[in-house]
Amino acid sequence: MHIHKYEKIWLAFGIGCLIVFLTVVGVSAFAAGQQPPSCLTTIDPEKVDSTPPFDHPGLVKKGDNEYELNIVVAAFSFTPNTIEIPKGAKVTINVTSKDVIHGFEIPGTNVNMMVEPGYVNSLTTTFDKPGEYTILCNEYCGAGHHMMTARIKVVE
């Protein structure tokens, strides 16, 4: 098949860019651990309230400056819905749903994950800047979807 010389140059350049993009995200995912949230733990969605750690949702101190934040999501609320986190804390957020699919997003951060019944999803982040953060549901879940919200206060 005949290909114009310039098209070869263009395709080499374009494909080269794609390879660079893939390498950058691949290395940062597999070598530096910046994977998208992909937790494989399952849970019975109807027994969330009696399954640890979701039987006592909230912030748990796990080590020096390390915390676990367990949140139960259900139409149309997050439990707990006001959370105080010390500035600079490294927090692993675990979420699960008691009913339908929800989203878990903190606008202005990389905290963004799907919350699906039967699964725990998980993501680790550090809150470096003090202030108020909003948690919201970004997957349609019913009539009250846009009312679903919670607050995080990062305090000194």
Binding site: P36, S38, C39, T41, M114, N121, S122
Partner: peptide, 10 residues
């Protein structure tokens, strides 16, 4: 389309 989902390995 499912990059942020639980239950699928990275």
């Amino acid at each position: 389309h499912q990059l942020l989902e639980p239950g699928i390995s990275p």
